[in-house]
């Protein structure tokens, strides 16, 4: 990983120095080794702060949304899943490919800094030290799918044969069991909207949850408003979730959001597939539920 860090610094220094980019997005070390976090270098002096280590898990592609209305040229380091996020943004016309210099890193799998900081917080019963982050165990594409420069040796996917096993377990439940399951997980939602904020597919300029006239979704932390929030959030992910797993990773009350997203991935694949969101960029191609044809075989929508 040291080599990757050095290579990233070298590229960042070159791009910033030559003026090829105005901002270079990567990661820096936090207080502790495990607290690796996003860092945006703006000058050559900043470059020394950039690191890549086993905790460089944060998907930076979402941060591009902050610059969508600007003119800045942006360098960004992406792993496999993060690079799918960039395709999400380009397909959704949120950022132009020409503004980006993408440094791809073939990802060996990451550990989760949030899990590590929680394990050391004293706020939870002591857990065994975690290995690879859960989302990395479900990874179908560790290698960047769009890049200008690639670092590291090609990696193999880590998702097992039974990619949708947990989804199938839920599908096999009775209606009552399933309702109980969702009630249990949604009742603990504190509506902090972190799952929305870290999501690269959540790029609407005005989110339905912020609309006040009319207010589509109530703001009570009640089971009905929480259900509504999660149903709406999830359905907007259909065919668009790039499986970076950030929503589930950052959730402060550990709602298994990827389980819900995976159900949609499975269904979109079954109904309209084969389809994997953001796995390759073809100009003009849109996700299945983002395109409309007049001769659609269904008579409604």
């Amino acid at each position: 990983m040291k080599d990757i860090t050095l290579k990233i610094r070298e590229i960042a220094a070159r791009l910033l120095q030559s003026g090829q980019v105005d901002i270079f997005m990567g990661w820096e070390k936090g207080q502790e080794e495990y607290q690796t976090r996003p860092f945006f270098a703006r000058q050559e002096e900043d470059v020394e702060k950039l690191i890549f280590n086993e905790y460089s898990i944060h998907n930076l592609s979402n941060d591009l949304l902050k610059y969508r209305d600007g003119q800045e040229k942006i360098g960004i380091v992406v792993k496999g899943c993060d690079s799918r996020g960039i395709i999400r943004l380009i397909q959704d016309k949120q950022i132009e490919r020409e503004r980006l210099y993408i440094v791809g890193v073939a990802c060996p799998g990451m550990k989760d800094p949030l899990q590590a900081v929680k394990d050391n917080s004293g706020f939870f019963p002591t857990a065994a030290s975690a290995g690879l982050a859960k989302k990395c165990g479900d990874c179908i594409e560790p290698n960047p799918v769009i890049y200008d420069e690639l670092i590291g040796d090609k990696q193999s996917p880590r998702a097992g044969e039974e990619r949708f096993k947990l989804v199938k377990d839920i599908e096999d439940m009775s209606v009552d069991q399933r309702y109980q399951f969702f009630e249990d997980i949604f009742s603990r939602c504190i509506r902090c909207y972190a799952c929305r904020q870290v999501c690269v597919a959540c790029n609407c300029r005005t989110c339905i949850f912020d609309e006040m006239k009319p207010q589509w979704v109530g703001r009570e932390t009640s089971i009905s408003d929480n259900f509504m929030y999660h149903l709406v959030r999830a359905s907007h992910m259909a065919g668009r979730c790039i499986e970076c797993g950030e929503c589930e990773r950052v959730c402060p009350v550990n709602i298994p959001l990827m389980l819900i997203n995976q159900k949609l991935i499975k269904d979109v694949n079954a109904f309209f597939g084969p389809y994997e969101a953001g796995i390759g960029y073809v100009e003009g191609v849109k996700p299945p539920l983002s395109s409309y044809q007049e001769n659609d075989p269904d008579d409604f929508l």
């Binding site: 902090c192 909207y193 972190a194 009570e220």
Partner: peptide, 25 residues
């Protein structure tokens, strides 16, 4: 603020944040 994602986690886990909204159903 460069990397802040403006979610509400910090305000909701904070023991002293007290801002509230009044709404109607």
């Amino acid at each position: 603020a460069a990397t802040c994602q403006t979610c509400g986690i910090c305000t909701y886990v904070c023991p002293s944040c007290y801002c509230f909204d009044i709404q109607v159903k």
